[in-house]
């Protein structure tokens, strides 16, 4: 039996769903390019660029976590490095004892949920500028604490993290295999993307989007804005932490710089350049920024100045970022094909 009114109303194509589908297309293109890149890397027996690209993907994961907060929930975190660093350190500590990829990832996940929930109890009370300041402060405190803790290697960080075999069930990849670990990292980042994209297409995720759109009305939907903010914060912490957990596997070390503001700040620049509120922009942005840093860094030691200028240019000329420019175009294509 069907309610007669459902027959009268033509089903509308939801804009948010359409936008997310467009993001999927962009990410599919991203993955195709990444696979082609890996194939070329293998063919020419490259190590340097594959490892650089792996690092870019890891920072894309951090940017993804910034976009959850900034682009969807409307919260500017100046301290996502806290969870990126937490994931990296926990992963490193685990790998020093047990050479298990899965154990390291699981430990980073658990640590980020716990610390995210605890810190969230402070953070969820505030929004806007206060949210930015509190997240900044928490990350600074954590960075200073790590910097001064001898057991964590203090200013040197933890070095000599052993190579870890990644057991995929059907085979094993060593974390020092450039193409192999690039693909593992790509896989992790894509899974994180898909999980986050999925969540924003559920009633839960839509409450977070509602928070960004108009927080004052959210209580009158029957949801606590604070609880929603806490959930978004923990989700972002987990995404940042799982990305960070890959870092010591790639580099063989972790250092307190991972927790510094420059890490958080770069992730924000990444999202803004790639396109706030697109998720795909975090992935593209991570690559763009890493490439810029390394290419410009090889020309001039003042690469931060150049990046700063490019960032300002991006904000002024591409206010919606690269994906913000491209995505509406794909949305139109999708809408047309749906008819």
């Amino acid at each position: 039996m069907r309610d007669p009114s459902t027959v009268l109303v033509r089903p509308v194509q939801d804009r948010l769903t359409l936008a997310m589908r467009a993001s999927h297309v962009l990410v599919a293109i991203f993955v195709a390019l990444a696979l082609a890149f890996a194939a070329i890397g293998v063919a020419i027996d490259d190590t340097f660029y594959l490892r650089l690209a792996t690092e870019a993907l890891i920072f894309s994961g951090l940017a993804l976590s910034v976009d959850i907060l900034l682009g969807y929930t409307g919260l500017l975190s100046l301290g996502q490095a806290l969870y990126f660093g937490l994931g990296a350190y926990v992963s490193a500590l685990v790998l020093q004892r047990v050479p298990s990829f899965w154990a390291a990832m699981a430990a980073a996940l658990v640590a980020c949920v716990i610390v995210g929930a605890l810190a969230g109890l402070i953070v969820y009370r505030v929004r806007g500028v206060y949210f930015a300041l509190v997240t900044f402060g928490l990350a600074q405190v954590a960075a200073k604490a790590v910097y001064n803790t001898r057991e964590l290697g203090a200013s040197d960080g933890l070095i000599g993290i052993p190579v870890v075999p990644v057991d995929l069930g059907f085979g094993t990849v060593q974390s020092n295999a450039p193409a192999g670990f690039f693909l593992i990292t790509l896989g992790v980042i894509v899974v994180l993307y898909l999980a986050v994209a999925y969540l924003f297409e559920t009633p839960f995720g839509r409450v977070l989007i509602a928070l960004r759109a108009n927080e004052r009305r959210v209580p009158f939907l029957g949801y606590s804005p604070r609880a929603a903010r806490l959930a978004a914060y923990v989700l972002a912490a987990v995404v940042a932490g799982l990305s960070g957990a890959l870092y010591p596997m790639l580099r063989g070390f972790v250092s307190p710089e991972l927790l510094f503001f420059s890490t958080s700040g770069n992730a924000i620049i990444t999202v803004v350049t790639g396109g706030v509120g697109t998720l795909a922009g975090a992935l593209y942005g991570g690559v763009i920024l890493t490439v810029l840093k390394s290419v410009i860094g090889s020309w001039t030691p003042h690469h931060l100045v150049v990046i700063g200028l490019l960032f300002m240019a991006a904000v002024i000329f591409l206010p919606k970022g690269l994906m913000g420019l491209v995505r509406p175009w794909i949305e139109r294509l999708l809408r047309r094909t749906a008819r």
């Binding site: 939801d14 009633p203 839509r206 759109a213 939907l221």
Partner: peptide
Amino acid sequence: LSVFENLRLAAQRLESKRRMLLPVG
């Protein structure tokens, strides 16, 4: 947000709790 999504958000509590993590639409 669209008119549709405004209403969908306002009506989503009519669904069971379990569906909070299942796709909208």
